[in-house]
Each structure stands twice: as C-alpha cells, then as structure tokens.
Amino acid sequence: MAGHSKWHNIMHRKGRQDAKRGKAFTKAAKEIIIAAKDGGGDIETNARLRAAVQAAKSVNLPKDKIENAIKKGTGELDGGEMFEVMYEGYGPGGVALLVDAATDNKNRTVAEIRHILSRNNGNMGEAGCVAWMFEKKGTLYFDKETYSEEQVMEVGLEAGADDIRDDDDAWEVRTAPEDFSDVQAGFETAGMNPTSAEVSMLAQNNIDLDTAQGVKLIKLLELLEDHDDVQKVHHNANVPDEAFEEYAG
C-alpha cells in the first residue's frame, strides 16, 4: 500500500475513536502465547517472544498479563491451546490477501473469515493461491519529523538492516526476519523509537486501485482486523489518497 504510515495513522486514530483497546490487548496476548509455545518462555533466546513482548508493551498491555500469557504458552498456566493459521483470498479489484490468525477453534474462525470476505467484495481462496506473491520481512517505520534519513541509515545499516526507503512521511527500514530483533535492538540502543515495528509479509508487486475500490478495501481490512482472532492482514494494493480521505471523512 502506498503510504504505510498514512494507513497506520488512520487506522490507529479510528481505533482510539472506536475504543478498541481491549481487542489490542487480546491480540497482543495471543501473539505472546504462540511465541512462547513455539520457542520457549525466555525472551533472551526467543526472538519472536521478545518482539511480541515489545509489541504488547507498545499497546500498554499490563505486566501481569504479559507474564500470564508467557506462562500459558509454556504450559505453566491453562489457556495456551492456541493455533496459528493463515487464510488466503482476494479483495476488491483482485487484491491478494493473506490473513494471519490465532485461534482455539479453527472451524469457527475460518467460517467467520469466509463470511466477512464474501459479504465485503472478497472471497476465500485455496492454500497457496496468493502466498507466493509475498516475502517475509522485518519492517520498522520512523517519523520523518523526528529523525533524518542519515540518522536512520547510519544506525540501521550498522545494526544489519537490508534496506531503507522513503515511505511518505516515514522512513521504512527492512530487515531479514532473522535479523529483525538485532536491528530493533540497535535502534533502541541509539534511543530511536519507531512508530511501528513488526515482522510482516510484504508484497513483491503491488496493483493500483481506483478510489471506489480503495474505499471498499479499507472497509474490508478494518472488518478483518476487528475480528478477535485476526492478528494481521497483508495485501498487495496501492490505495489512492482520495480513498483514505473519503473513508476517513
């Protein structure tokens, strides 16, 4: 999507207006449970857990809830029966969609995601139908008004980043997934705070949407991300500014 930071800012502003704090807590806790289940409860040796805990802190998940989520993932507490699933499909204008979800009931979740897609100009696809269009990368975004390109480039390249790009009002730093934690730590040591930081699936080639298609896609993405089991939605669309303005207005 053209303008990650624009999308990020609009969705988070709407999130505050819609009082979605509880959903953010739920999603953060689920990611911690899965990360701990997958790689153990030590944040020093489990890079995914370390990133999940940092993300949870960024949405102000209380310390005791973070600790309990880790214990659920390692089996020290009940409630850690969580499955990581990915759904593939298409949205308005033929946009490719990858939906990351964490659920304790796969049948319920797939039925609900299929329903959201079918009612909002999308449809569920077969496994593998669009995943090949994406590449797993770590991404960090830094506000241009706070940091210069030289600052971001100096720290990022020293820490092991692959690439630094101009993304509207933010600098985008890309890393290999295995280097994400080291690069994030490098910026933390330098006292530089990203507006967002995550390991994500990035489209290798994007398609352009018109304003009407863009508005439909934004609505669909918000409905998907509002679902309790959905952790993240990835797509390959360039959405025109007019669509953001029409949707936000």
Rank of each mutant, 00 (worst) to 15 (best):
A190F: 03
G191W: 03
G191A: 02
G191R: 08
M192P: 00
M192R: 09
N193G: 01
P194F: 06
T195V: 15
T195G: 04
S196N: 14
V199K: 04
S200P: 00
S200T: 14
M201W: 14
M201E: 13
M201L: 14
M201Q: 14
L202Y: 06
L202N: 11
Q204F: 01
Q204D: 04
I207F: 05
I207K: 12
D208E: 15
L209H: 05
D210L: 05
D210A: 06
D210N: 15
D210E: 09
T211N: 08
A212N: 13
A212Y: 07
Q213M: 06
G214T: 02
V215W: 00
V215N: 04
V215K: 10
K216F: 02
K216A: 15
I218F: 03
I218K: 07
I218H: 06
L220H: 02
L220R: 08
E222N: 15
L223W: 07
L223H: 07
L223T: 05
L224Y: 05
E225D: 12
E225V: 08
D226F: 06
D226T: 15
D228L: 12
Q231R: 15
K232C: 09
K232D: 13
V233L: 04
H234I: 00
H235Y: 14
H235E: 11
A237C: 07
A237G: 09
A237R: 06
V239Q: 01
P240D: 04
D241S: 11
D241A: 15
